[in-house]
Design a protein around this nucleic acid. Sequence first.
DNA 1: TTAGGGTTAG
Length: 637
Amino acid sequence: MKRIAARLKPRPLPPVSPPCSSPQPPASVSASSLLSEFTKLCNQQDFPRAMKALDDLETHELRADPAVYSDLLKACLSRRAVPLALRLQSHILSSPHSPHTFLLNMLLSIYVKLRLLPQARSLFDEMPQRNVVSWTTIISAHANVPELSHNALHFLVSMLCHGVTPNMFTYSSVLRACGCVSHLVQLHSSIYKHGLESDVFVRSALIDAYSKWGLPQEALCVFDEMPTGDLVVWNSVIAAFAQNSNGHEALHLFKRMKRAGFDPEQSSLTSVLSACTSLALLELGRQAHVHVFKYHQDLILNNALLDMYCKCGGVDDANIIFTRMADKDVVSWSTMIAGLAQNGYSREALKLFDSMKNSSTRPNYITILGVLFACSHAGLVEDGWSHFRSMKKLYGIEPGREHYACMLDLLARAGKLNKAVELINEMGFEPDGAMWRTLLDGCRAHKNVDLAMHAAEQILKLNPQDAGSYILLSNIYANAGRWDDVAGIRKVMNEKGIKKQPGCSWIEVGKQIHTFVLGDGSHPQINEIKIQLESLIQRLVRAGYVPDLNFVLKDLEGEEQREDSLRYHSEKLAVVFGLMNLPKGQTIRIRKNLRICGDCHLFVKLATKLEKRTIVIRDPIRYHHFHDGACSCGDYW
DNA sequence: TTAGGGTTAG
């Protein structure tokens, strides 16, 4: 055996021989020629003869040589030859020199790589001996399948019970399978106990796990304990903040990473773009775009770029990038469809969906959400119904909670409130607060007090502190002249200490973010802004602007006071600040935390005409592109 | 023979 192994190593494989006329190998066959024959038959995908060649190894008593089996196993993996792998398994298990744990681990790994989990489980159960590699392989295999990941932890417990000590490979695998924070903390503690916390793989896995559970600060603690740098660990911690809606910290860490001497690459840039997206930082996003050119073929990075332009009001740039992308996947299409819809281009979004149907990319759950969103925000009730009713039949996608929520939005906006209630009744699951809130919004717009009361009641059962619902209901009562009910709501809010979330707007000027909050006079230029705002309002009034007091909580006393509460809505302050500080011709881009009210919408429309400016306002749901007295939403939002 | 980072909704 040793001689055979020695011959196999230094010598190149002999040339491939022509196909055998006889199924029997020559009597004096060598291990290398058998291997060569086997490889050739695998290449030809002639599995029956390859298996026969494999049996010949046994005839020539070659089967116990680990080097031969190792090469054969590699051939199985590269050619995805599953029947051969199974035949090899029985050869190895029946070998007189069993247990051959090394070879069986290799085979186990091959099954996992070929996504043959049942075969991997079966082999794992049959293995005469299992070492840390065997356990780690089976743990990793389960950790990678979300619906089976809980088994990964069971295997870890079983491994410990069998007296096998986990290593850094084991922990970095099992961390992906944490089903709750307490498991994560226990694993973290075990990692310390085994002295594995400084392994960079374990560290990045810990950071990812804390991030996944919404604990980026804990991820940062793990990161900060790192004595030496590692690019992946940097990328993990940046992603932890980008994915947990803390774009500022993500960008701060990105700067730290560059100062530490690391060159950003695809993963870092993707997180930076994601941070720019969440903060609506178009100019910074454009700077990141320059670095993306280096990796222009990277699909994920391009998708992040598309999303950044769509969500930062640069939908035209997104369109150009999308058209030029050589490869597009379902994320690219979904991003662009939703992006067009959110920016007021619903019909273009639906046209793009038609193009997608003609492409080789199949829509997924999220694509359909974008399509329904497009219908909802353009009042296309029939199109929406059609897509909703056919999604399962055409694409095999069962309508989920979010699809129902979109349909409710579509119906409620369009004033089809009874249909919306019917849909709630047929959903097959309990409506959540957001769904009732959608209905409540529709009730306000279409003045249905009774249904509004029912919807508000349901929301407050689910979340008794929901200030928005109290305000909406109060406004609905006020519109109906039910002042006693308005007073009752205000009393309940006071008693429970419920306060409306203050409106807040952000605008980027000179690489700095300026924040405006309703009722907050802390901005250094606030006095000048208020003077300019007064002047603008007067000019707008002369041009026909009448403040719409329907958007004020109606229990405020007196018209003047009501008007004041509208006058200083944060987006109005931000618009005036933009007009004062951004050069003429430059688009004013504002992000805000609440949806824009009807009065501000009218104010901004008229201001764009009077000041000859384009203004883009992004609220939590969609984007309003104001230009020359009109808005891309067509006043339907 | 076993392990790491990035994109679409909400």
